[in-house]
Each structure stands twice: as structure tokens, then as C-alpha cells.
């Protein structure tokens, strides 16, 4: 299904400044990031100064201002995961992919994000790939996960 247009996201929300965060949430969800152009449109349509749109978009962690990789690996660095070695997991991802958190790998396939809590603390360290959860993570398990995602994407490309 194609993503909804910015127009349809704004439907029934125009001229309602209080809807700003909800609109940005939907833009983020469907486009993966919030572009300068969408900020300008949102600003015009909701009647919120562009400066305020930018200030909100850059304040909340939920919004990315740059496109992200095709696969988003989110590593929980909450307290429960931290004491069980979340740092190792983050180091593994950074070392293996050669990118820092929030950067995109050269092939455009990966972005690493660290989040403060994914809310599955009993099963830490926790990692999600594109929203699906993996518990009791170890550097080895993550290495295999990244490899399998990489393989799936390369195969998909060669079939195109």
C-alpha cells in the first residue's frame, strides 16, 4: 500500500495547531523522517510558524530529520538492559556496520538507534529490527541478525 499523502495526513487537522505532534507522528511513520518540505507544508496548513514546527520536530526523539536506512536496528539502553550489557550490543552494531547511532550505512540498508527503554526490561538486552523484538541479545546473536537482514536485502536486489 502506498503511504498516505501529506494531504490526507493533514485532513481534518488543518488550522489546528494543537495537532502538530500527531501530524508529525504520522509523517514520521509513513515517510521515515520529516523533510524540510513537509515541515513547510505542515507549518502552512496548521497555522504554526515554521520555527515552532522545527523546534517541536527537533525536540522529540520520535522524529528524525534525515532519512534513515531501510532497516532500523533499535538497541535498548535502558537501565535493565544496561546492566545486562547493552553497551556490548551497541558496540557490536557500531563495529559491524561501521556507523555511529543515527547514521545511515553507505549502502543505505542500516541505521542504528539507541532508545532509552523499549519496555521489555525483563528480557534484556532487547533489540528490535524494524519493530520486531529480539530478547536476551548477545553480540553473537546480533551479528547473525544483521547478517541475515543484509543477505535478505542483497537477494531481494539481485532478484529485481
Amino acid at each position: 500500500m502506498p503511504p498516505p499523502t501529506l494531504d490526507s495526513i493533514l485532513d481534518e487537522r488543518r488550522s489546528q495547531p494543537q495537532e502538530l505532534i500527531e501530524v508529525l507522528q504520522d509523517v514520521q511513520k509513513h515517510y521515515g523522517y520529516i523533510s524540510e518540505d513537509s515541515m513547510k507544508t505542515v507549518s502552512n496548513e496548521l497555522g504554526v510558524p515554521l520555527m515552532d514546527v522545527y523546534s517541536v520536530a527537533s525536540f522529540y526523539k520520535a522524529f528524525a530529520l534525515q532519512p534513515r536506512g531501510k532497516n532500523v536496528i533499535r538497541i535498548c539502553t535502558g537501565t535493565a538492559c544496561h546492566v545486562r550489557g547493552a553497551k556490548l550490543i551497541l558496540n557490536q552494531a557500531v563495529g559491524q556496520l561501521g556507523i555511529e547511532p543515527d547514521e545511515v550505512s553507505d549502502d543505505g540498508l542500516f541505521t542504528i538507534e539507541h532508545v532509552n527503554c523499549l519496555g521489555a526490561c525483563a528480557l534484556g538486552p532487547v533489540v528490535t529490527d524494524n519493530g520486531s523484538y529480539h530478547n536476551h541479545m548477545s553480540p553473537g546473536k546480533l551479528r547473525k541478525l544483521i547478517k541475515s537482514l543484509h543477505k535478505a536485502d542483497t537477494e531481494e536486489n539481485s532478484n529485481d
Partner: peptide, 11 residues
Amino acid sequence: DEGDPGAYMDR
């Protein structure tokens, strides 16, 4: 908005 890392009861 349960933001405390290490707490997930509200969720």
C-alpha cells in the same frame, strides 16, 4: 508516557 528506563508496568 512511561519514560523511566527499567519500568514497564504502565505499559
